[in-house]
Every structure is written in C-alpha cells, then in structure tokens.
Nucleic acid binder design. Structure first.
Length: 430
RNA sequence: GGAACGGUGGCAGAGUGGACAAUCGCAUCCGCCUUGAAAGCGGAAGGCUCAAAAGGCCCGGGGGUUCGAAUCCCUCCCGUUCCGCCA
C-alpha cells in the first residue's frame, strides 16, 4: 500500500509520481482515496468526541456509586445511554468508510522511484547492460528449440505431463530432472554466503498473498484451495515476505536476507495459447528466490547486490544475457524500481526473462506490517522489501539446451553445474 | 476429528466488571559509581491514530451484554497436552 499520510500531506506530489506510470486512471483512484480519507477523518473526530464524553460520564457513575448516590448515578447513566446510540450510528459509518478506503488502497499500485525510466510499455525498457557472452553468430545446431532437443534426448516428457495434469504442465526426466535440480542447488550455493536458506510453506493464507500484492487484484492468476481458504504460492516471495509479517524488528538485525527453493504455481490466466510448447511457460515450475528486508537507507545498495548476484549466476553458466531496466509503464503493481535479466534463446531467437530484480519500497511491508525500530528513537518505521529470482529453472534449463547443443545433438553441461550432476558432463541420447 | 487448558507490551508473566495502558521481572535507554566495562544504585520508556496538543483506539480476530469490559456471553482463528487418524 502507498502511504496515506503522504497522500494527505502532499497529494500533488504523489499524483505526479503516480502519473509517471502512464495510466490516467491511477490518478483518479488517488483522488478517490483522498476524498474517502477526508470523510473518514471527519467521522473519526466526531466519534472520538462522543467516546470522550461517554468515558467521562462513566467515571462519574463510578464515583457516584461509590458515594452511594444512586439516584444521581441513574441520571448520568440515562444521559450516557443517549450518547451511546449516537456513537453506534457513527461507529457503523466509520466501519463502512474505513473498509471502503482499505479496499481502494489495496488496488492502488506502488509509486515508482523518481529516477525510474519513463515509458509506456515493455517496448520502452532500456537495455542497461549487455549482451554478454553473445557469440558473433550461432551455429545451425544451436538453432533448435529446446523442446525438440529435450524430446530427442529423452529428458523432457511433456506429453505425459499433460496426461497426468493437463496442458501447460511439464516433466523432466533422467539427466533433465537432474539438471533442473542442479540449477537450484547451484543457485542456493551461490548465495549461501549472505542468505539464510528457508523451506517455507507452499500453501499460504489470503493475508499472506495480499501482503505481496497478488491479492486482491490478481486473484485469477493464482490457484486457490477454497475448501481450506489457502492459495498456492506463485513465487516464494509471498511466503518469505510474510516471515516477519506483524513484527517489529531491530534496526541492528537488518537487512534480513532469505533464500528459498520452492515450486511456484501460476494459472497463467491471461496467457492462454502463448508459449504452449516446451518449458517457457508452465503452471508449475521451480525457482530459487532471494529476498531482503531492509531499512530505507539500505534498500538501494541491496537492490544492486541482488542484481549482481543474479548476473553472477547466469554468467557463471556461460549463457548469453543482458540486463534491462523496467520502465514506469511496464512496472508491476508492487514495484518501486526493477530490472530484468534476460537470457538469449537461439532456438526461438528471442530473449527470455529469467529473473526480475525488484525493490518494493515500503509497499509490501506496509501491507504485511513489517516494521523496525531505530536504535535510541521512539516509534517504529515501515521496512523496505526487495527480491529477485536467483534462478528460475525452466527458462534457464531451456537456454542451456539450446546454447550448449552440439552438432551431434548432445548438450554440454556448464562446468559450474558439474558438482551437482552426478558425473554427467554431457547429456546424450539413449 | 474429539477433549482439556491457554492466547495480555520486545520477552516472560500477574490481573477475572469501575481508581488498569495494565503489578513484578528480564531485556532496552539515560544518569551516578568506575581508568573503561560489568555489578550495584537512581531514573525513563508500550503500540496505533491525528500536523500537533487534547482526545480516541489497542489485552488473538469479530460480534454482543453494560453507563462502563483485559475481566461476562457468543463466534471464529491460533497454540499446548491427551485421544483418534495418518506419512
């Protein structure tokens, strides 16, 4: 959520920042929230005044009762009862108005960073670095889509995955399954120097999925288990962010850094018919996520660190990659500033997004109520959260199959993965 | 799933209709003492809301009874233990 106090204090500044997202409707939403907030404060003031009177009268009753003056007490009680009726009416109006405002605020996206590049959509995302590891040209044997290679080598069996679970599910087998797992272990080991490994729950509550911004707006994208009021996580970000939900942390313990390997579940409701072959888009996939909870001052440096870490892993695999910045018009709802790391797929002749490195400012932390206390200062402050996919398995798996395919149809496994491959250095057909 | 007992500030733990935002302890902060620290002594300090003061709100969530609820009632959630079931 955005900070309602900021909107109250300087509405124009907030609207100007929001306008950078290039969606006029968003400014209207801010106007509406502003009006609701004013109304709510009026109700609050009146209700609090009545409460004050009732509290005062109640004390009088107690005093009168103690002194034995029951008659006077009765009369005060009558007066107080009348105020109580009025308070009930105001309380109801308050509850309604605050719920309306809360719902409105939950739908409003984060304010972009003032230096985030302006743009209208993904076509405006500038390349910030790269391409790196890009050969002058690709050989014909590299121009084979990974799903063909995967089938030829017997390591990708999507046909049976569909039999088991339906369209858009995948299944890796043999060395393919080993490769998928190796990628996860590799990514975890790359970040173990600074991140605590966590194995969080994959099914989470509505509150948890609301904290990171998936709900209520993007409910259609997530799998829900209605009978138990749970949701399948679309990313470990959801679980990891809520580790400290409702907590007050000490400034000294920040940044908190976590990493997790989990399966991720996405309905891909808006993508029906797209990327239906291979591993590029699936309802279930594995990913290693790295996440940090920081002070506002630590956030920018942490963002850079996350980006460096993602880049280091991709680079260590020897894949061609580039880094793009996400412009204001293409940023996700919770994002304050973000970068994508893309890997080149010679088989499909396209760049694949393999990681999104994101700074959420206090947007998610406010929803999750993650606060911290500064040493020697009164009060608390909302923390910042950031995260990145340290490695998303399917697209990296696909890129390896294409980039490292040999003329004989085999695939050379990057050296960085050898420790995890049980001795397999080249994936050959059966 | 059944039963019993619980849920109170950063932690621990009293309080069972009114003087309770809530005893005491630990941890925290500030003084004194000390070369410095610890110990000891004295003091300060919960969170949220409002520009702030006043005020209001907060004892797991929600609802109710009452002039007045941490305290009584209803309901939901969570925890512990036992039983059942199960990997």
């Amino acid at each position: 959520m955005i900070d309602i106090r900021q909107l109250r204090k300087d509405p124009q500044a907030v609207k100007d920042l929001m306008a950078r997202r290039n969606k006029p409707d968003l400014v209207d939403q801010l106007d509406r929230a502003e009006r609701l907030d004013i109304r709510l404060r009026d109700i609050t003031a009146e209700r609090d005044d009545i409460r004050r009177q009732v509290n005062e009268l109640s004390k009088q009753v107690a005093t009168l009762r103690r002194s034995g003056d029951d008659k006077a007490a009765e009369s005060v009680m009558t007066e107080s009862r009348a105020l109580g009726d009025r308070e009930d009416a105001l309380a109801e109006e308050f509850a309604q108005a605050s719920e309306t405002l809360r719902q409105a605020l939950l739908m409003i996206p984060n304010l972009p960073h003032p230096e985030a590049v302006l743009g209208g959509g993904d076509h405006d995302n500038p390349v910030r670095k790269g391409p790196i590891n890009m050969p002058a040209e690709f050989a014909d044997h590299q121009r084979v889509p990974h799903w063909e290679t995967g089938e030829q080598l017997g390591i990708l069996d999507n046909e049976r995955a569909v039999k088991i679970s339906g369209a858009m599910f995948t299944m890796q087998r043999g060395a393919g399954a080993t490769l998928a797992r190796a990628l996860c272990q590799f990514a975890l080991d790359m970040n173990a120097d600074a991140f605590e490994e966590v194995r969080p729950p994959s099914l989470v509550t509505t509150a948890t999925l609301t904290a990171t911004g998936q709900l209520p707006k993007f409910a259609d994208d997530a799998y829900s288990i209605e009978r138990d009021d749970l949701w399948c996580i679309p990313t470990a970000e959801s679980s990891l962010t809520s580790i400290h939900a409702g907590e007050v942390l000490n400034e000294a313990e920040l940044p908190k850094r976590y990493m997790a390997h989990t399966s991720c579940y996405r309905r891909e409701a808006g993508s029906a018919g797209r990327d239906t072959r291979g591993m590029l888009r699936a309802h279930e996939f594995d990913k290693v996520e790295i996440l940090a909870v920081t002070t506002p001052e630590q956030a920018e440096e942490t963002l850079n660190d996350l980006l460096v870490r993602v880049e280091r892993a991709i680079n260590a695999l020897g894949l061609p990659y580039r880094i793009i910045e996400i412009c204001t018009g293409d940023m996700g709802q919770s994002h304050h500033r973000s970068y994508d790391v893309e890997v080149y797929s010679p088989g499909a002749d396209t760049w694949l997004e393999v990681s999104s490195v994101s700074w959420f400012s206090d947007y998610q932390a406010r929803r999750a109520d993650i606060r911290f206390k500064r040493q020697g200062q009164k009060g608390t402050e909302i923390a910042h959260t950031l995260n990145a996919s340290a490695l998303a398995v399917p697209r990296v798996w696909a890129a390896i199959l294409e980039n490292f395919r040999q003329a004989d149809g085999s695939v050379v496994v990057p050296a960085a993965l050898h420790p995890y491959m049980r001795g397999i250095t080249v994936i050959k057909g059966n």
